[in-house]
């Protein structure tokens, strides 16, 4: 079978973060992890070409996946493979979107990434094969991926035994005992010695690998971002007040302060009286602008990014984070101040 392999700019050998903005392109034959993949696939399958896109470009351009898919079709792809993306959010999102687009267009496709990769929820109907968390686990990850490709090429279904990620869903259901009665039952079970009893697992912490510090704020571009739902008065773009499905951007070049009456918060989760009386209480534009003028901030990014963090599912919020990171990197921003409510 004719296999096309997708990797990001780094694994294609085209450069690191400095090249993350490059657009979709196709390279002949295999590169980087594709060589190992080709070797493991054996003689029956050939990686005819490698698709590449910069992570920032892929994560911040909705059309990138479609462009890559068209290239794959032109190259006569019969199977599309993406990754492994390990734990990298932007790369994972790029892989997920591409295989989702391919699968829904009838081209068998699969991606490889760590099960905690924020991009995983965008893979749609396409299977995702678990990789390790980092490139240190390249070999076992590609081995597993190669075996899965062979199965997909043979038209077989992938199962968790193949490393297919099947997120354990928690299903809501109606029960006869109302929640208050179950709370009393649970208290009694715990008092009775069953200290592990709970309806939802407790504990567990988010782990975010901190970015390296910047050298001096005076020499970089700094962005303001918020989940406080600050929008122009009247909410022309109809940002949701809860359960965000999207984020927006508003230009602030030449604006010294967010004036009351011109900007408002449409967040539904907290009292907005104070913020609407002075929207700088949610996005500190006036102070940041002063610090820019004084030279403490090199440059303030020309727009701020905004969504509403009110009842937004964690998976959605993580995806927004990946997209914001790509967006800001692409624009040359090196630090961001996120105001949260």
């Amino acid at each position: 079978m004719r296999v096309l392999h997708y990797v990001n700019q780094f694994y294609a050998g085209l450069g690191g973060e400095d090249s993350a903005g490059i657009g979709p392109r196709m390279l002949e034959g295999t590169v980087g992890p594709g060589r190992l993949l080709a070797q493991l696939l054996g003689a029956e399958h050939e990686i005819v070409a490698t698709l590449v896109c910069g992570d920032d470009h892929a994560a911040s351009n909705a059309t990138a996946a479609q462009e890559l898919l068209e290239m794959a079709r032109d190259a006569g792809a019969e199977v599309l493979v993406a990754g492994p993306a390990f734990g990298s959010g932007r790369y994972g999102l790029a892989c997920a979107r591409l295989v989702a687009a391919a699968q829904s267009a009838g081209l068998p496709a699969l991606a490889s990434m760590h099960p905690d990769n924020p991009g995983i929820s965008d893979a749609g109907e396409a299977p995702v094969i678990a990789s390790g968390a980092t490139a240190r686990e390249m070999r076992p990850s590609v081995q597993r991926l190669a075996a899965a490709v062979v199965k997909v090429a043979a038209g077989e279904e992938l199962t968790p035994a193949d490393g297919k990620v099947t997120p354990a869903a928690r299903i809501g259901q109606l029960v006869t005992q109302r929640s208050a009665a179950r709370a009393v039952e649970l208290v009694l079970r715990r008092l009775g010695g069953d200290r592990e009893a709970t309806e939802v697992p407790v504990g567990g912490f988010g782990v975010v690998e901190p970015a390296a510090p910047i050298d001096k704020a005076a020499s970089v571009t700094v962005a303001l971002v918020t989940e406080g739902a600050v929008v122009p008065a009247g909410n022309p773009d109809r940002l949701e007040s809860a359960r965000a499905t999207r984020w927006l951007r508003y230009p602030i070049d030449g604006v010294d302060s967010l004036a009351s009456g011109e900007w408002e918060s449409v967040a539904g989760g907290f009292a907005t009286t104070a913020a609407n009386a002075d929207p700088n209480r949610l996005v500190p534009l006036d102070a940041a602008r002063t610090l820019e003028r004084e030279g403490t901030i090199g440059r303030l990014h020309e727009e701020f990014l905004v969504t509403v963090g009110n009842g937004t599912p964690v998976a959605t919020a993580r995806r927004f984070g990946v997209e914001w990171a790509a967006e800001l990197r692409k624009a040359g921003v090196q630090a961001a101040i996120l105001t949260a409510t």
Binding site: A217, T273, A274, A275, R281, L282, P284, L291, T339
Partner: peptide, 26 residues
């Protein structure tokens, strides 16, 4: 409701506080 403000302060005091917050973030 006011991550970069404090409505209990007089205007000049709140400006000062917001500046400190941004400076601290930097």
């Amino acid at each position: 409701p006011y991550p970069s403000g404090d409505p209990s302060l007089p205007p000049a005091g709140e400006q000062q506080w917001r500046r400190q917050l941004v400076q601290c973030a930097l």
